[in-house]
Design a protein around this nucleic acid. Sequence first.
RNA 1: GGAGAGGUGUCUGAGUGGUUGAAAGAGCCGGUCUCGAAAACCGGUGUAGGCUUUAUGUCUAUCGAGAGUUCGAAUCUCUCCCUCUCCGCCA
Length: 421
Amino acid sequence: MLDIKFIREHPDMVKEGILKKGAGNNIDEVLNLDLQRRELLQKVEVLKNKRNVVSDEIGKLKREKKDAATAISQMDEVKTEIKSIDDELAVIEKSLNQFLLTIPNIPHPSVPVGKLPTDNQEIAKWGEAPVIDFKPKPHWELAEKLDIIDFERGVKISGAGFPLYKGQGAQLQRALINFFLDEAAKRGYKEIQPPLMVNANSATGTGQLPDKEDLMYVATKDELYLVPTAEVPVTNIHRDEILKEDQLPVKYCAYTPCFRREAGSYGKDVRGLNRLHQFDKVELVKFVHPGVSYNELESLREDAELLLQKLGLHYHTLLMCTGDMGFTQTKKYDLEVWSIGQQRWLEVSSISNFESFQARRMNIRFRPRGEGKPEFVHTLNGSALALPRVVAALIEHYQTPEGKVIVPKVLHKYTGFEIIG
RNA sequence: GGAGAGGUGUCUGAGUGGUUGAAAGAGCCGGUCUCGAAAACCGGUGUAGGCUUUAUGUCUAUCGAGAGUUCGAAUCUCUCCCUCUCCGCCA
C-alpha cells in the first residue's frame, strides 16, 4: 500500500499515477477519512490524557487513604466519551485501511504510459528462431507422440489444466528446475523451500488479497490459500521484521508448484502448456535498499535472461506499459520466448519492482547503519523461470524432422540423456 | 484430536490492579582508560501515531491478537492464535 502521509502530501501525483494504471480513483475519500481520523484522534487523546492524569491522582489519594469518590465520579463522563469516539475512530480507520489496500502502486516515470499490448516497449531481443526445412509442430503434438506429457489423463485425474508429465517429460521438468536453482545459487540467491499453503495475512501482504481472491485456490476449512507463486510465501519470510542494513540485499530463490484458478476463458491459450492451473516455477525474490532498487531490477532481469540464453532460446524483453502492469508494481519487464510451433511469443518471466508497496503492507524494514529510524525495504521479484512455456518453446525449438527433441547441452548433466524419443 | 504449562523490549528474564515503557543482566552505540585491544567504569539504546513554537518538545497507543471488568490493566474475565510437555494418530 501507499503511505498515507505520501498521499496526504502529494495527492495529485498519486491521482495521476493511478490514472495511468487505468484504475479507479478514490483519493479524495481517502483524504477525507484521513482528516476525520486525525480530528477524532486529537479529541480522544486529550480525553485519554485526562483519564491518565486523574487516575494517577486517584491512585495517590487511595495510597494516602483519602476519599477519591469525587474524582472517580468525575470520570464517568470522560469514560463514555472516550468509548464513543474510539468506536467512531475504529469505523473510520477500518474503512480508511480498506481504501488504502485497494489503491494500486504508482508507476515509475520511466514506464511508458498506455494500455494496449502495443504500448509495451521491446527493449531487447536475443537469438533467432531456428531455420528448419520442415513444418514445425506445436509442442502438444510432439509431446503426445513422444508420450512425455499426458493431457487427457490429467483431465481424468483432476481436470483441464493439470497435465501429467511422464518419463523423459518428467525428467526434463526436473532437469530444468535443478538447472534454474543451480544458476540462481551461482548468482547469490539462497534456496528456500516454502510452505505451499499460506494464511490470509501472507496473501494480503503480497497483494493477492483482498482484491484477487478469485485467482487462488482456497482451503476454506482451514483458511489457507494454495500459493499462486512462490513470491507469496518467500516475500512473507521477513514480514514484521527489521533487517540490518548490512544484510541487504537479501536474495532468495525458490522452486514451487503454482496454483491458479484462472477463472474465465483465454481462447488461444487453452491448448497444451500455454495456461495451466498447476505449473512449476522457480522464483527469485530480493529485499533491497531503497536507493538501489532500480539497479537491482536490472540485475534481476539479467539473472532471468541469462537462463534463456544458456538454453539457446529465442526471446525478447518487454518494458510493460502502465496499463499492463499489475496492482502492486512500479515497473515491470516481461520476458517472452519464441514458440516456433505456434508462431507466437510466450511469457515465461515477469520481473518487477514493488518499491516499498509490499514492504509497507508486510512491515518489512531495515535499520540504517549507525543511528536512525527503520525504513521500509524495497522488494522485487522475478520468475526464473516459469516451466511450462519454457518446456513448450524448448521442445518446439529443438524438434527434429522425425519428431524427436534434442536436449540443449546445458541440461545434459541434469537429464542424463541428449535426445527425447 | 485429548490433558497440562506458557506467550513480557534485540536476547535472557523480573513483574498478580496505581510513577511499570516496563527491574536486572546480556547485546548494541558513544565516551573514559590504552600505543592498540581486552577488561573495568560512565552515559545512551523499542516501535507506531497525533500535535505544535520541529524540540535534549509534548501527548496517545503498545507486555501474542481481539473484546470485556475498573477511576485505573502487563497484572482480573472471555474468545481466538501460537509455542512447549505428555498421550493418541501418523509420512
